[in-house]
């Protein structure tokens, strides 16, 4: 049993989510419906996209502390330019993705600490967001709003979206040739260079992918909230890092899991709903999220350690 968990790293995130979901349904049986599940996981869609973005960066052994500010900026652009002048809006969002790739290239070219550069970039993104939208406001483009509130048959939109995101990124990162090389950059950059790959371009590519998913995250968020604010997604930075780790990813070595990251994001989003169902005083909600994080990671430690002892 323990062996099973240790060899299949994806099992632990899945079980964590299942246990939390079962506990939520037990506390609040009415949540066990099409509508209820959609409410529970609605806000998980942008978090899952942000977590996938963070995963791209962690995959190449870096960490992105600017993601929350970036998603906020995208949300501001979506609620203003993309709504008022769609062509200009698309151009700006494309420009932001290119900028992200550029940062990746810069970090690799000068061998800069990613933690510091992204920290600086969080000021830049935050400043731009404040300039675009000094006070909360804006409006979601109609098509985006209807996309985020669509009601597919059988499964709620949030679940369908999560499965789609997990499936597509899994294909991209775990199955495709380029995904394998990208993970190789995190595993051993030197050997990737020796094999004749341009690491500078690969790293820029990983950052570009992160920017792409960051843009999707901001757009999905505006589709749900219908308005934006310069600080709307600042907490995504920490949520996305925690989501990647919860999903079985590691900070070094290119060991990440796309499906795990999405499940980790769903777990974090569900934790918030679960705690409010528990009638826990709001004072303790943030702390309880920290405790859940510690709990899951403790479970992981137990499994990996037992495995080492046995083998």
């Amino acid at each position: 049993m323990i062996r099973l968990f240790a060899t299949h790293r994806i099992l632990l995130p899945v079980v964590s989510l299942a246990v939390l979901l079962a506990a939520t349904f037990y506390m609040q049986p009415r949540a066990m419906s099409y509508f209820g599940v959609n409410l529970l996981f609605n806000l998980a869609v942008p978090i899952a996209l942000a977590t996938v973005a963070q995963m791209m960066i962690i995959m190449v052994n870096d960490i992105d502390l600017s993601l929350g500010a970036f998603v906020s900026l995208v949300a501001c652009v979506t609620a203003t330019f993309l709504h008022d002048t769609p062509v200009l809006g698309v151009a700006i969002l494309a420009g932001l993705i290119v900028a992200y790739a550029g940062i990746g290239a810069l970090i690799h070219r000068f061998d800069l600490p990613a933690i510091v550069v992204t920290l600086g970039m969080s000021f830049v993104w935050g400043g731009l967001a404040v300039m675009i939208l000094p006070s909360p406001g804006g409006a979601a483009p109609t098509w985006l709003r209807s996309l985020m509130t669509v009601k597919p048959p059988l499964l709620p939109m949030a679940v369908v979206a999560a499965i789609l995101i997990a499936g597509l990124t899994h294909l991209l990162i775990m199955r495709s040739g380029i995904g394998t090389v990208l993970r190789g950059v995190g595993g051993n950059a030197t050997s990737v260079v020796r094999a004749g790959w341009p690491v500078l371009r690969l790293k820029a590519g990983a950052y570009g992918l992160a920017g792409f998913f960051g843009v999707l995250s901001g757009m999905a968020l505006v589709g749900l909230t219908t308005a934006a604010d310069a600080n709307i997604a600042l907490r995504y930075t920490l949520l996305s890092i925690a989501g990647v780790i919860l999903g079985g990813g590691e900070f070094v070595g290119g060991r990440v899991s796309a499906v795990g990251a999405v499940i980790g994001a769903l777990t974090l989003a569900l934790a918030a709903s679960f705690l409010s169902f528990m009638r826990l005083s709001p004072d303790w909600q943030i702390g309880a999220q920290g405790a859940i994080l510690i709990l899951v990671l403790t479970a992981r430690l137990i499994f990996t350690r037992r495995d080492k002892e046995q083998s």
Partner: peptide, 13 residues
């Protein structure tokens, strides 16, 4: 405030 933040970030980098 926006320009200030942007410049601070650029200067750090």
């Amino acid at each position: 405030a926006g320009v200030r933040m942007m410049l601070t970030g650029t200067i750090i980098i």
